[in-house]
């Protein structure tokens, strides 16, 4: 048990280190911009004096390393800065200090909750569906059902998200208006209403991630079917379904959990396109909008949030696969 705790602590530390290096990478990438923030905020026609004032205000006259650690320090205290759009707006309205403007953290927090809600709904549909489809495909391997599911899965994996999204909109939103094709979600909505509006994007994402998980579940189970203990169970006269669910599935759990966690990591980041299609007010949409208007503080913050979520989910996959596999629990 103690060695396991140490292994998990090791992974956590490694994840933190990765996050640290990623933050350096993002910081450096943003600082590779031509000109600097000050010019970006004020635009081409700014007077040199104004640029200089903002530059001093943002601390841009300091060396790069100092600025990185200042940025990191503020980041750790939840201060992600003020977006250019908001800063511009504040300057236009005439509020003196940027403290009154809406900070990036304020902008991101509710949207991140929405994105997590969407990812959660998707996971709640996709995980049971894909595992049961995978078990069925393994049970009837080689049959028409198996081949049909496989072809459908390959097609769903390889189609772009917006293709699946528009097909769903066409059939479920326009021709048979059962689900709303625009997800305008606001504060204070009832849960049922919110779920209904999230359903179409969630279904699209389900189509995208189910295929991969189902294929991996099927492969993991079929890998085990050649082993002697499965043959023993079969020779005892057990029904095929029972052989798979009782004997093969527990040993196939590690790869299945792994692929589920990796797909959930994909979900957190793969929402970008789907959110744009359905105008879902999540973090992905904010990200794309900020990329278009080059709102650097928001881009930076969103990028960091996505990377953190991605690293965390991968870490979780790692730890869960250690926990579910006794052989990995006791390294030689």
């Amino acid at each position: 048990m103690a060695s396991m705790g140490r292994m998990i602590a090791q992974r956590l530390l490694l994840g933190l280190l990765t996050l640290f290096v990623v933050s350096i990478l993002i910081f450096l990438a943003v600082n590779a911009l031509p000109g600097d923030f000050a010019q970006a905020i004020l635009g081409q026609s700014a007077t040199p004096e104004a640029v200089e004032a903002i530059r001093r205000g943002l601390g841009l006259d300091q060396p790069l390393v100092t600025r990185y650690f200042q940025w990191l320090w503020r980041l750790l205290h939840g201060d992600l800065g003020v977006s250019f759009a908001q800063a511009n707006f504040a300057a236009y309205v005439g509020s003196a200090s940027s403290a009154e403007a809406i900070t990036v953290a304020d902008q991101i927090a509710p949207r991140f909750r929405n994105t997590l809600f969407l990812a959660g709904v998707t996971a709640a549909i996709a995980v049971p569906l894909s595992v049961s489809l995978g078990i069925l495909a393994a049970l009837y391997r080689g049959s028409i059902f198996d081949r049909g599911v496989n072809i459908a899965a390959l097609t769903a994996i390889s189609s772009p998200e917006f293709f699946l999204a528009y097909i769903l909109i066409l059939f479920l939103g326009v021709l048979n208006p059962v689900l709303p094709s625009l997800s305008n979600i606001y504060e204070g909505m009832s849960f049922g209403e919110r779920l209904l509006k999230t359903l179409l994007p969630a279904l699209t994402l389900t189509l995208v991630v189910t295929a991969h998980m189902m294929r991996m579940t099927r492969a993991a189970i079929i890998n085990l079917l050649a082993s002697p203990y499965i043959e023993m169970a079969r020779l005892k006269g057990m029904s095929p379904l029972r052989v798979i669910v009782r004997h093969a599935l527990p040993n196939a759990l590690a790869p299945i959990i792994n692929v589920i966690a990796i797909n959930l990591a994909y979900l957190v980041t793969g929402v970008v396109v789907v959110e744009v299609v359905f105008v879902y007010p999540g973090i992905g949409q904010l990200f794309v909008d900020s990329v278009k208007i080059r709102d650097i503080p928001v881009v930076q913050a969103c990028c960091l949030v996505f990377a953190a979520a991605y690293i965390l989910m991968n870490l979780l996959a790692d730890i869960l696969s250690i926990l579910s596999n006794p052989r990995l629990r006791h390294p030689k």
Binding site: I26, A32, G35, A40, T269, V288, R294, V299, A307, I311
Partner: peptide, 23 residues
């Protein structure tokens, strides 16, 4: 390359495209 792969592909591409569009 481990570090580069720690950032999801589409997100990284979008970040770099922001900078590229400025260039």
């Amino acid at each position: 390359i481990d570090v580069l792969m720690a950032i999801p592909a589409l997100i990284f591409a979008l970040l770099l495209m922001t900078i590229a569009s400025a260039w």
